[in-house]
Design a protein around this nucleic acid. Structure first.
Length: 782
RNA sequence: GGGCCUAUGGUCUAGUGGUUAUGACGUCUGCCUUACACGCAGAAGGCCGGGAGUUCGAACCUCCCUGGGCCCACCA
């Protein structure tokens, strides 16, 4: 024992230093999945981290550490666990990252070259990501990392797209999109920033048809007058009561538009009447859709007015056109006044120019016709916690067809070509990875419509969620291994954050259902968000993100993992607090020191040779109860329960009451050999169990203690035993012991005695079986 | 503006329709008691956001209000 115990002599505290010593061992354990092991399969669809963010913030690392605790605990409950790790590497964020890093612009860079630079960036970022994951012993199968930009993965994305194309689920449509004129592309909502801009609010009159009345409208976008399709007034607004359902005549263009009562128009703003144009903003989009108003597009993708704007404005840029139409309106005598106002304008985050909402020809995945079915599926899915299901249900109610094409470079290519003669799309067969922007269609391709043999490739990519939404199919080998797929799909569990319910969860259900006719998983475990110490979401723009590597280096990975598990129930948001993390580190040191004590006594006793003492029976019964509770927590995918139960037991029962009660006996002072052995047996019985219960949450310290104290193979290959039956009466007696202890401590305090001083105090009759231990613990002399 | 969630001692958190509401951190007091001062023991501190209701009884169920968080939409 002496040699192994050196670590205990040299270290009074658990620390990151000790974790580093065991890191190699902990991370070298293999977690390969074997579908034919005969055990029940527990398969997890984990989020492939997005590789562009730096640093990966603490909230995300905390979430992954909880997911890891779930995977580890399922193994220790006897399951064959599929716990894959992937990297999400497609899409706009990495393109941006590369642009910034190499000071280039995507569209000014040859596509091949740009793709190479993106891939280079990704490889670096990915390495950092793996390092972080390994630093807290994430136990996925790192021998089989998947990447969403690999040929294999993109093949799956494309094949499943083609499958859906053949099923008629892909539609082509021209719908309003965010369009940055400067960048020449559609951009995502997330890429828009709002900025207060000085602008003019122009008040001008429309004539009412067949009347000499006029209606006053206020607009910041008068250049869109030619695209005006209605005027809205609030139904409660007395000023306009008589105008509702009348027809107005647009100045300049002399077109007829209806005046409609609609709550969107606010009486307080401007003149109280608003003109709806295609498209000034997304309200216009909504209103035009809702009221089924005609669409009249007057701005082209170069940011110039087109022929629909009239001869005078045609060819002008938006700003010039605005100036021009104002003077035209003034000449026509329609302008009442012009106010200078501040206006929040949607701008392209990158070019800092206003975006326009322009209908573009894009592909959509049709969902609107199966919304009822999706809602049904959502209701069938078990969500943990159940309350978060509402977010998905609510979203399903308002969601529309999913636009899936992007005018970008670094993504999975849309596998389509178009006939040069008639523009008919040509769809290749599934099962290969296609790059239409640089490849010809497969040999022998013929246009199904006109028989043409020359094609031009689609140069767009997919929305990156098209890739990640089939992760459940990729990890179960949907295309590549039928046997494996049938054993593992649907998966047992999806784990993810609450922030991507509308995207990843929603799109995954949609895609997998359309392809397999089933929900991809039995359960979805939805975690809350990591917030900063003030309860605000961590984000780059706020600058309040915390780097997990710094925290882990300072306090240790186990302290971090224990903090994450014990801080909040899964599903709740959790606030980062350094002092609470310190509390977790202290707890690990407590565990460490209990081990140091137990180590002094050795442990090689056979239960069959020992007559157990009453105190020892009590703590073992307590341990069985705790095991039962913790197992239940793990079965419910809730590491919060074991983390907190074990901590409470350790710190409030085991260390202060039980250990103090039996310490002298374990040292063997004035006790029989059997009494001594009984104490040592129970101390080890309980401590081993504690280590097992803790090991999914704190893999480092438990591994170190397990190998130092018990010299057995890795704790991470052990099972958590089922709880044995226990006697409730014994537990009640245990509570009486703890009450009595406090009573004695209080008495000593009142009498200004030190804790080891002798005291005269009566031991309650029901505690007679424990009398000898109690006397030695408190130095009671009667 | 719309939706969802949430509200428990200074801070953060657990909790069940029913006797003195859980734990952690912090605070105060006393202790280096053969594992731990990152410790031990003791103590203070909460009308469980406000109001109404259901009930024999509510922190726990219902409604309203208020505060907070998140998502969506953002002012023609």
């Amino acid at each position: 024992m002496a040699e192994d115990s050196k670590i205990f002599e040299e270290n009074k505290n658990w620390s990151r230093k000790l974790e580093k010593e065991i890191e190699g061992k902990v991370n070298s354990l293999k977690w390969n999945f074997s579908p034919s092991s005969g055990k029940n399969i527990f398969s997890i669809d984990t989020p492939p981290p997005y590789t562009s963010g730096r640093p990966w913030h603490l909230g995300a690392a905390a979430q992954y550490s909880k997911i890891d605790a779930i995977a580890r605990s399922q193994r220790m409950l006897g399951k064959e666990v599929l716990f894959p790790i992937g990297m999400d590497r497609n899409g706009i964020p990495v393109e941006r990252y590369a642009e910034k890093k190499y000071d280039i612009r995507m569209r000014d860079t040859p596509r091949e070259k740009f793709i190479d630079l993106c891939r280079e960036s990704l490889d670096e970022l990915e390495k950092e990501m793996f390092d972080i994951l390994r630093s807290f012993a994430y136990s996925a199968d790192f021998d089989q990392v998947y990447r969403t930009d690999s040929v294999e993965y993109r093949k799956l994305t494309q094949s499943t797209f083609i499958e859906m194309w053949k099923k008629g689920r892909i539609i082509r449509g021209t719908r309003p999109s965010n369009y940055c004129i400067d960048c020449g592309t559609t951009i995502a909502d997330a890429e828009i920033e709002y900025k207060e801009m000085d602008t003019s609010l122009v008040y001008f009159y429309f004539k009412i048809k067949d009347s000499n009345k006029k209606i006053l409208v206020a607009s910041t976008r008068p250049e869109l007058l030619g695209a005006c399709s209605a005027i809205l007034v609030n139904p409660e607004d007395e000023r306009f009561k008589d105008f509702v359902n009348k027809t107005a005549i647009t100045p300049i263009y002399n077109r007829e538009v209806k005046i409609i009562a609609h709550s969107y128009a606010k009486a307080e703003f401007g003149s109280g009447a608003v003109m709806i144009c295609s498209y000034g903003d997304y309200n216009d989009v909504m209103i035009i859709k809702e009221l089924q108003l005609p669409e009249n597009i007057i701005i082209d993708t170069n940011g110039r007015m087109n022929e629909n704007a009239g001869d005078k404005l045609k060819g002008m840029k938006v700003k010039e056109a605005r100036k021009e139409i104002i003077s035209m309106l003034q000449e026509a005598g329609c302008v009442e006044k012009i106010e200078d106002i501040q206006h929040r304008t949607p701008m392209c985050e990158r070019s800092k120019t206003p975006i326009e909402i322009i209908p573009l020809d894009e592909y959509y995945l049709k969902v609107t016709d199966i919304k009822d079915k999706l809602e049904e599926l959502a209701n069938e899915l078990t969500m943990i916690p159940e309350q978060h299901k509402q977010i998905l249900i609510n979203w399903l109610k308002v969601s529309t067809d999913w636009p899936i094409s992007r005018r970008r470079y670094y993504g999975t290519e849309i596998p389509l070509w178009y006939c040069k003669k008639c523009n008919e799309p040509y769809v290749p067969e599934e099962g290969k990875y296609y790059q239409p922007w640089k490849e010809n269609p497969p040999e022998g391709a013929v246009c199904s419509k006109c028989g043409g043999k020359e094609f031009v490739g689609d140069d767009r990519t997919f929305d990156t969620w098209m890739d990640s939404s089939v992760s459940a199919l990729y990890v179960t080998k949907y295309l590549s291994d039928k046997n494996f797929y049938e054993k593992t799909y649907p998966l047992s569990l999806r784990t993810q954050g609450i922030d991507i319910i509308r995207t990843w969860l929603n799109y995954s259900i949609l895609r997998c259902y359309l392809l397999t006719d089933k929900l991809p998983w039995e359960k979805a475990w939805i975690d809350g968000m990591g917030l900063d110490e003030h309860g605000e979401k961590m984000s780059k723009s706020k600058g309040n993100g915390i780097d997990p590597t710094i925290v882990i280096e300072k306090y240790g990975a186990d302290a971090f993992r224990f903090w994450a598990a014990s801080e909040a129930l899964p599903g709740s948001n959790f606030l980062f607090s350094e002092s609470r993390l310190q509390g977790s580190a202290k707890f690990l040191t407590k565990l460490w020191n209990v081990a140091r004590l137990i180590n002094k006594f050795g442990n090689s006793y056979d239960i069959n040779e020992i007559q157990l003492n009453e105190s020892d029976k009590w703590i073992i019964a307590y341990m069985e109860k705790l095991t039962e509770e913790c197992r239940k927590g793990y079965e419910e995918l809730n590491p919060f329960i074991p983390a907190n139960r074990v901590r409470e037991f350790m710190w409030n029962v085991f260390a202060p009451h039980y250990i103090e009660l039996v310490k002298a006996r374990a040292y063997g002072e004035s006790f029989s050999e059997n009494e001594k052995k009984s104490a040592i047996y129970a101390l080890n019985y309980v401590f081993r169990r504690i280590l097992l219960l803790m090991s999914p949450i704190t893999p480092f310290i438990t591994q170190t203690l397990w190998s130092t104290l018990y010299k057995e193979e890795s704790i991470h290959y052990q099972m958590i035993p089922e709880a044995k039956g226990y006697d409730d009466k014994l537990l009640l007696l245990g509570d009486r012991i703890m009450e009595f202890n406090s009573k004695v401590w209080n008495a000593k305090k009142e009498q200004k005695l030190s804790l080891r001083d002798a005291i005269k105090i009566e031991i309650p009759r029901d505690l007679e079986p424990f009398e000898k231990d109690l006397k030695s613990m408190h130095n009671i002399i009667n």
